[in-house]
Simulated scan of single mutants.
Amino acid sequence: MDKRGPIVTLCLLLLISKISAEDVCESGLYTNSGKCCSLCPAGFGVVVPCGDSDTKCEPCIENSTFSDVRSAKAKCQPCFTCQSPSLTLESNCTREQDTVCRCPERQYLDSNGICLPCQLCSKGHGVVSQCTHNKNTVCQLCSSGFYSEVKSSESPCLPCRTECKETEVQIGDCVPQHDILCMDKDVPILKRTEGGENGTSAGSPHFIPQDNSKNIIPVYCSILAAVVVGLIAYVAFKCYTTCKQKKQLAKARAGELATSTEGEKLHNDSGVFLDTHSLQEPNHLSKAKIEPKLYINLPPHKQSEVERLLADTSLGKDWQRLASLLGYEEETIDTFGRGEDPVHTLLTDWSSKESSTLEVLCAALVNMERADVVENLNSTNDASSVV
């Protein structure tokens, strides 16, 4: 058998691969004569681009210019300087690397050379890449099967649990903002199915009202007691305000009697009659101007009109913006939003505060560009002033 055949084939393959390697031009550029253009190494910049002749390179200047790439086009770039007071120098500029400046902890250097705080990924979003000295945090919405319950610049999305413990029952699915929700099976108002009723097995937990009404009676009694206590507190509050108003009215009447007595004396002594009510009227007007107008004193129908306008988001920004301007935290606003009528809940809670004046409310509405609601409130003030 002739053994020269495989050897000849191997030699041909080596020759072809060598020719192919020589034909590959790394820069992808050629001179006018067809010669492959050379690349300037890192630390060198292009002086004369490839054209009639090959690429001409020159070394970058130490601490002045640099080039960190191999290229047939790139020139030496000027070194960056750490000019901001908050920047600290980590490494000087070399011919192959630019200056490295570092911002304080939890900040990064943007493209304009300014230190900015690293972004915090909100709930339901996880960190894809953490904040570095020259790159901001990259956040991403948690996909199905993952969640994030914290605001962080470091925590990624965590995998959801697949099931609750044996002593718990699942009451909520996993969503981007939280893991699956579980509750202890021994809670009095819940119990597990004991048999296969309604096509379910004894091993699968479900919410079933207890048939034993004795366990529900304490719950009803607690609710009734809370209602009674609330009514008593409301009646006590109304009695307190009524008594306070009566005392103020009594003081005002006593002042009127004292003024009327002085008027009668002047009438008896000089024969001139003075209208005591006309003397007191400027004082009442000045007091009315000084006393702030509270939102809680608006008529119920007028409060309903304001709530209706704020609920209509097609006319402007929504009630959540108003809640933020009135000083409520994000968690409290979320709590209001889970109710049936968040606008009514917000204004009812705010009106119980001492600072709940119409001036404060109008200022917040002007800030959120809801002139329609301000006009409605002003029409109320005009009507009350005419009366």
Results as ranks from 00 to 15, higher is better:
Ala323Val: 04
Val187Gly: 04
Cys239Ser: 05
Phe44His: 09
Asn134Glu: 08
Asp312Asn: 03
Cys101His: 03
Ala42Gly: 12
Arg321Gln: 04
Asn367His: 06
Cys79His: 00
Pro300Asn: 06
Asn63Met: 04
Ala364Phe: 00
Ile189Asn: 12
Thr167Val: 12
Glu281Ala: 07
Gln177Trp: 14
Val127Asn: 06
Phe237Lys: 05
Leu158Ser: 14
Val366Lys: 08
Pro85Gln: 05
Cys182Gly: 07
Ser352Arg: 07
Cys164Gly: 06
Leu13Ser: 08
Ser286His: 14
Pro218Arg: 15
Gly263His: 05
Glu305Ile: 03
Ile114Asn: 10
Glu331Lys: 09
Ala254Asp: 10
Glu96Tyr: 04
Val127Asp: 03
Thr276Trp: 10
Ser33Trp: 07
Pro209Arg: 11
Ser324Trp: 04
Ile61Gly: 01
Thr99Cys: 01
His206Val: 11
Asp68Thr: 05
Val47Ile: 11
Thr242Trp: 11
Ser260His: 06
Ser222Phe: 15
Ser304His: 06
Val47Gln: 08
Val360Met: 01
Glu154Asp: 12
Glu340Asn: 06
Lys247Ile: 12
Gln83Ile: 01
Leu141Pro: 15
Pro188Ser: 09
Ala236Met: 11
Gly337Thr: 09
Pro218His: 15
Thr259Ile: 09
Thr94Phe: 02
Pro300Lys: 07
Pro205Gly: 11
Lys35Gly: 01
Gln210Tyr: 11
Leu294Glu: 06
Asn283Ile: 15
Tyr240Pro: 03
Gly34Cys: 02
Leu158Asn: 11
His344Leu: 04
Ser351Glu: 04
Cys157Ser: 12
His344Ala: 07
Ser270Asp: 14
His344Phe: 05
Asp372Ser: 05
Lys185Cys: 08
Pro342Tyr: 00
Ala371Asp: 13
Leu325Trp: 02
Gly271His: 02
Gly51Phe: 00
Asn136Gln: 02
Leu322Trp: 00
Tyr220Arg: 11
Phe80Leu: 03
Pro59Lys: 13
Pro218Asp: 15
Ser84Ala: 08
Cys239Leu: 05
Asn198Thr: 14
Val219Met: 14
Thr94His: 03
Ala21Trp: 15
Ile171Leu: 12
Pro49Lys: 02
Lys247Thr: 12
Gly28Ala: 04
Ala258Met: 11
Cys25Tyr: 07
Leu190Cys: 10
Leu190Gln: 07
Lys56Arg: 14
Ile180Glu: 03
Arg70Leu: 07
Asp179Cys: 13
Tyr147Ile: 15
Phe146Arg: 14
Ser355Ile: 04
Ile296Met: 05
Leu285Cys: 08
Gln97Lys: 11
Pro209Cys: 10
Ser351Asn: 06
Leu309Ala: 01
Arg192Trp: 13
Gly339Leu: 06
Asn381Met: 12
Val127Met: 12
Arg102Gln: 14
Thr94Lys: 03
Glu90Met: 14
Lys191Ser: 08
Thr348Cys: 06
Ala226Glu: 13
Ser356Gly: 09
Leu365Thr: 00
Lys238Glu: 07
Asp98Asn: 07
Ala364Gln: 01
Pro78Arg: 01
Ser355Arg: 04
Glu96Asp: 07
Ile189Asp: 11
Glu149Lys: 15
Val219Asn: 13
Pro85Leu: 05
Glu166Arg: 11
Ser152Asp: 04
Leu322Ile: 01
Gln140Leu: 15
Pro342Leu: 00
Val47Pro: 02
Lys246Thr: 15
Leu29Pro: 01
Thr332Trp: 14
Ile7Thr: 02
Ala202Phe: 09
Ile19Asn: 10
